[in-house]
Amino acid sequence: MKARRVRASEEDLLSPDSSFWSGGKTEFVALSPVPLAMTQEVSPLMAKRTDHGAVSSVEVAAVHNGSHLALRLEWETSTSNAIDDLDRFADAAAVMFPMHPEAAAVTMGSEGRPVNAWYWRAGSAGRATCFDVVAEGLGTSVRRDARQTSLTTRSAYVQGRWHITLVRALETGGDAMRFEAGATTGIAFSVWDGANAERAAHKSASMSFSELELEA
């Protein structure tokens, strides 16, 4: 996948309706249910689940403006879901990047091979939330305030389809992923279907890192 370089403000990058999105190529990324048997040590209760993976593909586009990277994710789902009761779960999505060349996507990295993710979650009355996430293996993920890494998101649910944009500065300092125009990195995707009570590793994911090239 290629992130075209566009002339756009950070605000334009956030808008799913910006004209540059329609000009570029989108990719359909296949998602499959995470093999939960591998989570037996982490949560034997979650490991029993077999009903996850409701969303099987996500349509993705990427652009950058030299200072910020924007990703647009869209997928079909028949209802929008937020945590509006104690037994309800929210629709959510995340993109993940390897911070080590040998980090594995399926386990969210491993000790000494961290990954960094941008996580978006639907909220009641349109109030979505996002977190910056770092992890070094199953069960180790740590959510951080998105403001720490200047991660911003925008989302809309229109006619059975989520439209999400996630925007972050290429360089944020600290221990978050660094991006560079002209360079290629890995990218992986996850989607949680709230109606199916999906959360944690109980989700659909692309399982391995594919390439994301930022146009020079």
């Binding site: 982490v42 949560s43 209760l45 979650m46 199953l138 069960g139 993920s141 944690a200």
Partner: peptide, 10 residues
């Protein structure tokens, strides 16, 4: 405690 076992975040 089953809660300890079940929590995927430890």
């Amino acid at each position: 405690p089953p809660c300890v076992d079940a929590c995927p975040k430890g």
